[in-house]
Simulated scan of single mutants.
Amino acid sequence: MTRVDFHTNVGDALLYACRLARKAYQAGQPLVVVADHARLRAFDERLWTFSPLDFLPHCMAESELAARTPIVLATDVEQAPHHQVLLNLAPVVPAQFARFERLLEVVGNSDDELAAGRERYRFYRDRGYPLNNYKQGA
Protein backbone atom coordinates (compact mmCIF):
# COMPACT_ATOMS: atom_id res chain seq x y z
CA MET A 1 0.00 0.00 0.00
CA THR A 2 1.24 3.48 -0.83
CA ARG A 3 2.75 5.40 2.07
CA VAL A 4 1.53 9.03 2.12
CA ASP A 5 3.69 11.78 3.65
CA PHE A 6 2.11 15.19 4.21
CA HIS A 7 4.48 18.15 4.50
CA THR A 8 2.34 21.02 5.78
CA ASN A 9 2.67 24.68 6.65
CA VAL A 10 5.45 25.20 4.12
CA GLY A 11 5.95 28.85 3.27
CA ASP A 12 7.18 28.40 -0.31
CA ALA A 13 5.77 25.14 -1.68
CA LEU A 14 7.97 25.07 -4.79
CA LEU A 15 11.17 25.71 -2.86
CA TYR A 16 10.21 23.03 -0.35
CA ALA A 17 9.41 20.64 -3.21
CA CYS A 18 12.88 21.31 -4.67
CA ARG A 19 14.40 20.25 -1.37
CA LEU A 20 12.31 17.07 -1.36
CA ALA A 21 13.39 16.37 -4.94
CA ARG A 22 17.03 16.85 -3.96
CA LYS A 23 16.60 14.47 -1.02
CA ALA A 24 15.01 11.78 -3.23
CA TYR A 25 17.73 12.22 -5.87
CA GLN A 26 20.52 11.96 -3.31
CA ALA A 27 18.90 8.81 -1.91
CA GLY A 28 18.78 7.27 -5.39
CA GLN A 29 14.98 7.19 -5.46
CA PRO A 30 13.44 8.02 -8.86
CA LEU A 31 10.84 10.75 -8.48
CA VAL A 32 7.81 11.75 -10.50
CA VAL A 33 6.39 15.24 -9.90
CA VAL A 34 2.78 15.79 -10.91
CA ALA A 35 1.02 19.14 -11.43
CA ASP A 36 -0.55 21.22 -14.19
CA HIS A 37 1.61 22.66 -17.00
CA ALA A 38 2.01 26.11 -15.45
CA ARG A 39 3.04 24.75 -12.06
CA LEU A 40 5.45 22.29 -13.66
CA ARG A 41 7.08 25.10 -15.66
CA ALA A 42 7.53 27.10 -12.47
CA PHE A 43 8.92 24.04 -10.67
CA ASP A 44 11.29 23.32 -13.57
CA GLU A 45 12.67 26.85 -13.30
CA ARG A 46 13.05 26.54 -9.53
CA LEU A 47 14.97 23.27 -9.91
CA TRP A 48 17.54 25.18 -11.98
CA THR A 49 17.83 28.11 -9.56
CA PHE A 50 17.04 27.03 -5.99
CA SER A 51 20.62 26.01 -5.15
CA PRO A 52 23.80 27.17 -6.91
CA LEU A 53 25.63 24.02 -5.79
CA ASP A 54 23.10 21.37 -6.83
CA PHE A 55 22.21 19.96 -10.22
CA LEU A 56 19.07 17.83 -10.22
CA PRO A 57 18.66 16.02 -13.55
CA HIS A 58 15.04 16.28 -14.63
CA CYS A 59 12.87 16.32 -17.74
CA MET A 60 9.27 16.29 -18.83
CA ALA A 61 7.51 12.92 -19.04
CA GLU A 62 7.08 13.35 -22.81
CA SER A 63 10.86 13.39 -23.32
CA GLU A 64 12.55 10.36 -24.81
CA LEU A 65 14.99 10.63 -21.87
CA ALA A 66 12.30 10.23 -19.21
CA ALA A 67 12.92 6.53 -18.54
CA ARG A 68 16.59 7.29 -17.78
CA THR A 69 16.08 10.54 -15.87
CA PRO A 70 15.76 10.40 -12.07
CA ILE A 71 13.27 13.29 -11.77
CA VAL A 72 10.36 13.35 -14.21
CA LEU A 73 7.77 16.13 -14.41
CA ALA A 74 4.31 15.01 -15.56
CA THR A 75 0.82 16.41 -15.92
CA ASP A 76 -0.57 12.87 -15.90
CA VAL A 77 0.72 9.99 -13.77
CA GLU A 78 -0.06 7.64 -16.66
CA GLN A 79 3.05 9.08 -18.37
CA ALA A 80 5.32 8.19 -15.44
CA PRO A 81 8.23 5.87 -16.24
CA HIS A 82 9.04 5.38 -12.53
CA HIS A 83 6.79 4.20 -9.71
CA GLN A 84 8.84 4.66 -6.56
CA VAL A 85 8.07 8.18 -5.30
CA LEU A 86 5.37 10.60 -6.47
CA LEU A 87 5.49 14.27 -5.46
CA ASN A 88 2.08 15.92 -5.81
CA LEU A 89 2.09 19.67 -6.48
CA ALA A 90 -1.53 19.67 -7.67
CA PRO A 91 -4.49 20.68 -5.47
CA VAL A 92 -6.24 17.34 -6.09
CA VAL A 93 -5.50 13.67 -5.44
CA PRO A 94 -3.44 12.42 -8.39
CA ALA A 95 -5.02 9.68 -10.48
CA GLN A 96 -3.23 6.33 -10.23
CA PHE A 97 -1.21 7.42 -7.16
CA ALA A 98 -1.56 3.88 -5.76
CA ARG A 99 0.96 2.67 -8.37
CA PHE A 100 3.68 4.35 -6.31
CA GLU A 101 5.43 3.08 -3.21
CA ARG A 102 5.35 6.54 -1.66
CA LEU A 103 3.42 9.77 -2.18
CA LEU A 104 4.67 13.15 -1.00
CA GLU A 105 2.06 15.86 -0.51
CA VAL A 106 3.26 19.45 -0.11
CA VAL A 107 0.76 21.84 1.48
CA GLY A 108 1.48 25.56 1.69
CA ASN A 109 -0.01 27.88 4.28
CA SER A 110 -2.48 29.86 2.14
CA ASP A 111 -6.18 29.28 2.82
CA ASP A 112 -6.72 27.63 -0.60
CA GLU A 113 -3.75 25.28 -0.18
CA LEU A 114 -4.78 24.33 3.35
CA ALA A 115 -8.36 23.57 2.32
CA ALA A 116 -7.23 21.44 -0.63
CA GLY A 117 -4.68 19.68 1.57
CA ARG A 118 -7.34 18.82 4.15
CA GLU A 119 -9.53 17.33 1.42
CA ARG A 120 -6.67 15.18 0.14
CA TYR A 121 -5.79 14.10 3.68
CA ARG A 122 -9.37 12.98 4.33
CA PHE A 123 -9.42 11.09 1.02
CA TYR A 124 -6.33 9.04 1.91
CA ARG A 125 -7.34 8.57 5.58
CA ASP A 126 -10.83 7.37 4.68
CA ARG A 127 -9.32 4.73 2.39
CA GLY A 128 -6.90 3.45 5.00
CA TYR A 129 -3.60 4.69 3.57
CA PRO A 130 -0.77 5.01 6.10
CA LEU A 131 -0.26 8.73 6.73
CA ASN A 132 2.76 10.58 8.09
CA ASN A 133 2.66 14.28 8.96
CA TYR A 134 5.57 16.69 8.90
CA LYS A 135 4.50 20.16 9.99
CA GLN A 136 7.03 22.86 9.14
CA GLY A 137 7.59 25.98 11.18
CA ALA A 138 5.93 24.55 14.27
Rank of each mutant, 00 (worst) to 15 (best):
L31M: 01
F43T: 01
E45K: 12
F100I: 05
T75V: 13
L47R: 06
H82R: 03
E78I: 07
L31S: 01
A90N: 13
A98Y: 12
L56I: 13
Q84S: 15
A35L: 10
V93L: 13
D76W: 01
S51P: 01
V93Q: 13
R39P: 00
L40D: 05
A35K: 03
I71S: 06
A66L: 01
T75P: 09
M60V: 02
A35G: 06
V85S: 05
V77E: 12
P30C: 08
E101F: 03
P94Q: 08
V72W: 00
A61M: 09
V33A: 00
T49G: 04
T75H: 02
H58S: 05
A61P: 11
L47S: 08
M60D: 14
L47A: 03
V92L: 09
R39G: 01
N88F: 12
D44T: 10
S51N: 15
R68P: 00
L47C: 05
V77G: 07
W48S: 08
R99W: 14
A74E: 04
P57Y: 07
A38C: 03
C59G: 02
A90W: 11
P30L: 04
P94S: 05
R46W: 03
E78T: 09
P81G: 06
F100Y: 14
I71E: 00
L87T: 01
L31C: 03
H37E: 15
E62G: 12
Q79H: 15
P30R: 05
R102D: 04
E45I: 11
P57C: 02
R39Q: 14
H82A: 03
A38I: 04
A67I: 07
F100Q: 00
F55N: 06
D76M: 03
D36T: 04
E45A: 11
P70L: 02
T75D: 10
D44H: 09
R102P: 03
P30Q: 08
A66H: 00
L53V: 15
A90F: 15
H83M: 13
L73I: 06
E101C: 11
R68V: 00
E78R: 15
I71D: 07
L89A: 09
V93P: 06
F100E: 04
L86C: 05
L86W: 02
A67P: 00
E78G: 06
A35V: 00
L103V: 12
T49W: 08
L86F: 10
E62A: 13
Q79D: 13
E64F: 08
E101P: 00
L86M: 11
D36R: 11
E101W: 02
R41A: 10
A74V: 10
R39C: 12
H58E: 04
F43Y: 11
A90D: 15
L89G: 03
P30F: 01
T69K: 08
P30G: 04
P81M: 02
L53N: 13
F50Y: 11
D44A: 10
